[in-house]
Design a protein around this nucleic acid. Structure first.
Lengths: 283, 283
DNA sequence: ACGATGTGGTTAGAATTTGATCCATGAAGA
DNA sequence: TCTTCATGGATCAAATTCTAACCACATCGT
């Protein structure tokens, strides 16, 4: 292989199946991607993609290539982690991936103080709804809400995240005989313990919380979302429903990087301070 | 990592510990190697080499990097093999690695006819004294004289390569009471079964054969080296000594490449035709 | 039907990388 | 001691690569 870097382009291209999308991911232009892919095909002597009107599709050969490229990618990622872990400086970047709702409800203040305490650290917060993989070093530290923490990562469980039933003050005052059920459609879709009928379905915590605040009905939310929300009231007639756990995770290779260390410790403290509320034991 | 290709440069550099040597291996200039290594160090944030007056020495970090780079390299090599195996064309390159003496004594004519039969194939013969590794794709096909063929490779044992005792006609005519022993110093250094005293030691088959032809004494040679040599006579009072085996090998990934196929078959036939002589059963 | 958007391809000019050359240094040999 | 050789650094012209800007085409929503 003449230029190993072409594998990086090929990989992005195979994933996105589009020259322009790959270019965006690689922070370059589609002309470059096009040229490099062609060069790689020339070098290898066989076509990697079939140019169809629907887009680029991997040939059988391209598929085999992709499989082998995985191992190369894994190696490069291990190298990146090694280099990052090696970096003993307090000045520099750390990337944190966290669910957006968790950021607003739990981590906004602690992270604000973290940045004030360590002004040399460049904290990059990536709030996202889908979870990221620490292995791939898309983030250095991730706060994950999950039932089974992945084995590759290291870190601690910082809290349970049970569900509880909430509604607005207004709804509680004029509560109907048959409750209106505002459901979050991620498993477990708990059958309501109340006398209720489905009224609304959403796949976003934020949306469910908003609908509840508007007095549309009763629904389940993780306690960290609702427990200190003045507009929402918890219905204590419904018990806490154990659900997921909150973990703070990083990769073992970069655990000894001082910036990662500091951020992890800070997060541990932040969750420790708010654990009672997050687990619905406050009030 | 910004540029995966820098790993290729780093690897060459770590192996040769010299900018110029690495540049030669990579078929580029020392200026480029110097720049790329520096860029990689910049990117990773730590020094890979210590610049000493004796040359470049890997730092501890560089050593860890080298370990991880191995896995990347293995992946790229697998890709190269895949691409080569994929290539279904009869026109193109095949590289053969063979011990120089074996080329002259056994393969010169068969390979000549091979090239005449398949003029579109670009045959690259690399004669060498040290053996190459098929895994690394430094050669596509290798003819190896060994006692234990490596497991990764595929191919056949094409002959045994026993040793026999030889001397020149002149030496035989005026043979002394105590023979002069011309020894090849690769194991097994068989103790002479004759009444002989050491007179000469060399590590090259060619040199031993030459000294024997000059009538300097008696020595052991693989039969393929001496059996049809007009200047040498075999001493039948000494039995054949089983030694190594001759294997024709390639990698499973490229076995189905038609050029490799043809070359392997041709080699099989060549050895089959000459097997009696190579194994010392001719006359 | 129409514009808006997204796709990949092409090309000129800009930016970067590369390669040939010269230089200073240090080691090995005569 | 002097010569020779190989090393790495520095420099600047040459080559390559990248970018930005177009183009043609297809799809989608109005």
């Amino acid at each position: 292989m003449k230029n190993w870097d072409d594998l990086r382009i090929f990989r992005a291209m195979a994933k996105s199946r589009s020259i322009r999308a790959a270019a965006a991911e690689l922070k370059t232009t589609h002309a470059t991607v096009s040229r490099r892919v062609r060069a790689l095909e020339d070098d290898l002597g066989s076509a990697l993609f079939e140019r169809r009107k629907e887009g680029y599709v991997l040939t059988a050969f391209g598929q085999s290539m992709m499989d082998l490229t995985q191992s190369v990618t894994a190696g490069v990622e291990a190298i990146d982690r090694l280099a990052f872990g090696q970096d003993g400086s307090l000045a520099g970047p750390v990337r944190l991936s966290v669910l957006e709702d968790l950021y607003y409800k739990v981590l906004a203040d602690p992270l604000d103080s973290f940045m004030r305490s360590h002004p040399m650290i460049e904290l990059a917060i990536e709030t996202t709804s889908n979870f990221r993989d620490v292995n791939r070093r898309e983030a250095d530290v991730i706060v994950r809400i999950t039932s089974d923490p992945p084995e590759q990562a290291v870190g601690r469980k910082v809290a349970d995240s049970p569900l509880a039933a909430y509604c607005s003050h207004g709804y509680l005052r004029n509560r109907p005989v048959v409750d209106r059920w505002i459901a979050l459609d991620y498993p477990p879709t708990v059958a309501p313990l109340l006398n209720a009928r489905p009224a609304f379905l959403a796949n976003s915590l934020t949306v469910v919380a908003d609908v509840l605040r508007r007095g549309q009905g009763i629904g389940l939310l993780p306690c960290f979302m609702a427990e200190r929300d003045c507009d929402l009231v918890r219905l204590h007639e419904v018990d806490l429903i154990p659900d997921k756990e909150i973990w703070t995770l990083t990769h073992v290779d970069i655990l000894h990087n001082p910036r990662v260390r500091l951020l992890m410790d800070h997060l541990y403290h932040a969750f420790s301070d708010q654990r009672a509320r997050i687990e619905g034991r406050a009030e």
